[in-house]
Design a protein around this nucleic acid. Structure first.
Lengths: 217, 217
DNA sequence: AGTCGCTTGTGAACGTAGGCACAAAGTCGC
DNA sequence: GCGACTTTGTGCCTACGTTCACAAGCGACT
């Protein structure tokens, strides 16, 4: 199966999870693993896992399984996180602070190249080794550090403007934590994480469980 | 279309977004809206929006559109957020702090009924009007405040244990921010948010864009 | 009251994703 | 070297989700 094949979106999301799980397993000293075992550790069906991996090529050994190290390299290459990728973070409020201090980014292939905020009172503040800069500096940092990903952690009403500035500066992928719909041109990818939406989805299922219970009574 | 019909998972996620968008529109004084306009504001296709709404029943008016207020009530009811739903948050580190202070929960149907942490040094700390409690208090709070949703914002290695304790206390839905796969019994719903995974998905698309560019050259 | 224009609600077609089950391909023991 | 056993890679089928396109329904205007 060649590298040229289009990889489904759903598969990409799972590959990232496999990579994380493989990291722990590898730290535990495991050198090879079967699809069954890895699938269990990642919480998916083993057939689905094999199909996912088959998009990257076929480098498992029948009767044995996969070599953990090889798998990590293949997935890292596919996801483009073989060397660290630079990101900028805009909005250093509550959530922005937490993100800036999140160790998981560094250990999983990302480097925060800059922190930005529109509020003059926050500029100059130091957060985990970085200094918060004003929005005027954004374009220069993005260009100089070859940043391709921007993270938006501003209030909703500022999100679209920040997004536009990021795109203007050359960013082509955006991770948006603000509860707002962003409109961007086709060549820019946006992923959104809305914490309240996640809770509401869970709430829906709770609602269903409660309704089901009532029906039984 | 009756309430009894099963609502697809994908639709539920979008309903939460519609509800958010309707909130802003309603604040802006709008009283009715067409599927086309709402779809634009929510960033989806209008046919999809109509189909989504049709799962709740049919209360649009042909030639006119939907009454904003009615729509909000219908969606709120469906999602089970007509009155505030209580949640508990476990893990008051970097991210936990941010979540505890997030105003969006309150305004979108949720109330934080308790903050918990295993670290004795954090117990007693006050965060946005609440006091951090020890894990021993968890079960009592869950029972007393009728909490059905738990949020895990601990390090990965503590996540499974915290999850088990939440379930034992009676929580039936979990939102997991820890980069770990949780195993739970079938009657418990888990949603996970992994910040690094989100970035890796964006990274993948960047990788593709770069590869495409190279192919052109 | 009748007609016209607009918008909903939905059937039908299409595309994507998931899961089973099995042949192919390798290892290990003898 | 050979046979038994293990595990991969994948073809096929089913289920889910998305999009199109249009008939049915409602209000506004005459």
């Amino acid at each position: 199966m060649s590298e040229g094949r289009a990889i489904p979106e759903a598969t990409v999301a799972r590959l990232a999870v496999y990579l994380r799980v493989l990291g722990s397993l590898s730290d535990g000293g495991l050198s090879t693993i079967s699809s069954e075992a890895l699938a269990n550790a990642a919480g998916v069906n083993s057939a689905k896992l094999r199909k996912d991996l088959s998009y990257l090529g076929s480098f498992g050994t029948r009767g044995v399984g996969y070599v953990v190290q090889v798998l990590r390299e293949q997935i890292s290459t596919c996801l483009g996180v073989t060397e660290h990728r630079s990101v900028v973070l805009v909005g250093v409020g509550n959530l922005g602070h937490a993100l800036a201090g999140y160790a998981g980014f560094g250990s999983r292939g990302f480097r925060i190249a800059g922190l930005f905020d529109a509020d003059p009172r926050r500029i100059g503040e130091g957060i985990s080794g970085l200094t918060v800069q004003g929005m005027d500096e954004l374009a220069a940092v993005v260009a100089q550090e070859a940043v391709s990903i921007g993270v938006i952690a501003t209030p909703a009403d500022a999100a679209q403007e920040v997004c536009d500035r990021l795109v203007a500066a050359g960013v082509t992928s955006i991770l948006n934590f603000a509860p707002a719909v962003l409109s961007v041109s086709d060549n820019v990818d946006v992923r959104k994480v809305d914490l309240a939406v996640e809770l509401q989805i869970l709430s829906f299922h709770e609602q269903r469980k409660a309704a089901g219970l009532k029906a039984v009574l």
